[in-house]
Design a protein around this nucleic acid. Structure first.
Lengths: 189, 189
DNA sequence: ATAGTTTACGAACGTTCGTACGCAAATATG
DNA sequence: CATATTTGCGTACGAACGTTCGTAAACTAT
């Protein structure tokens, strides 16, 4: 059996290189070397460089969205929703560092039709979080400021983790609780 | 006179393209078109693509550092120092959107020796801010959490501005005060 | 063992990249 | 006006890019 072991290796290596150098600056020859192949041999397992990015972006996007669905269905308290989202982002950033990278930077290099689909999912995800925050402001649970700014602050707070996540310098739980607590403290009324 | 008008145009256009597509994905032919020239003609004004990036990175780095020097020399209150830094970052992100881009992403594509020099300045800048935050924690002015996490949160809070700074959707002053207030509220004891 | 399928390779493709060079037009300097 | 300098263009370069293709070796299943 051993289903797709090489293919998984390729995706893992690609993720690592995309984080380190970015999609455009990562060549198929580098990637091949990373998994011990020649460049042309990659195409026995994947169909294109674009496929690597597309797969990563879409699986991350749907993963985030699925989590949001789940959280919002079981949790009605606005603060708890935001806390859960924060936890999920931080955990994901630790365990699957490519997620924040593609969500923040590399999605730009998607081609159609994947690009549009990704943007649609991402917009959906973001507008639902924005809506939660706007509700929080309306209900005087959150500080009375432009919800869009609060939302952007919320979103960007996770973006540093993957950049410094070299040898897991920090304790995940520590980051998770500190970051979330400080963030919520800032935006709560 | 009209010193270097074309050269400035080139830098401005390059900054715009680096923000929009990234350094690696911006070609000299695109850049040339943006300023109404042929690619080869760019080299009457600049010496290389790398020079464009190097100039941007170094001038931004020294600008941030100079501001930090100035702030820390006139202001001793830790909260006020952090507030000033926050203001400066946000104002810079609005008025000179390439700054956060190169500081966050594009500096990676610098070549030696500029890369090392940039990293040195950047490290200097960051460790001084970290030191201020650590002081704040020690003096119980800031919340009793890992200063490194607080520092990273602080730094990353500005990184969203340039990405959405398309048609100046927001009022600069609004962003400046909201973001800074929420941020400080979060990290203050 | 045989046949079929998957995996890997080397060579080569068409393109695009950053940039060098020689020359003409434009501009500045005397 | 004559001269020197700057600016721009067309062409072309070598290198690197993603990818294709024919083929051979390595596995899998019968």
């Amino acid at each position: 059996m051993a289903i797709n072991k090489k293919k998984d290796q390729i995706f893992t290596a690609a993720a690592k290189l995309f984080i380190e150098h970015g999609f455009k600056a990562t060549s198929m020859r580098q990637l091949a070397k990373e998994v011990g192949l020649e460049a042309s041999s990659l195409y026995s397992h994947i169909s294109s460089k674009q496929e690597l990015l597309a797969q990563m972006c879409m699986s991350e996007a749907t993963k985030y969205l699925a989590n949001l669905d789940q959280v919002m269905s079981v949790e009605k308290d606005i603060i708890n929703v935001l806390r859960s989202i924060s936890y999920f982002h931080i955990e994901t950033a630790f365990e699957d560092p490519v997620s924040e990278t593609v969500f923040t930077n590399e999605w730009r290099y998607l081609e159609e039709p994947t690009l549009s689909e990704f943007k649609r999912i991402r917009k959906d995800y973001e507008s639902r979080i924005l809506h939660v925050i706007a509700q929080g402001v309306n209900q005087s649970i959150l500080i009375d400021k432009d919800p869009f700014i609060l939302f952007q602050l919320f979103q960007s707070s996770f973006k540093w983790i993957y950049m410094y996540n070299k040898p897991s310098k920090w304790n995940k739980e520590d980051v998770k609780h500190t970051l979330t607590e400080v963030l919520l403290k800032g935006i709560k009324k």
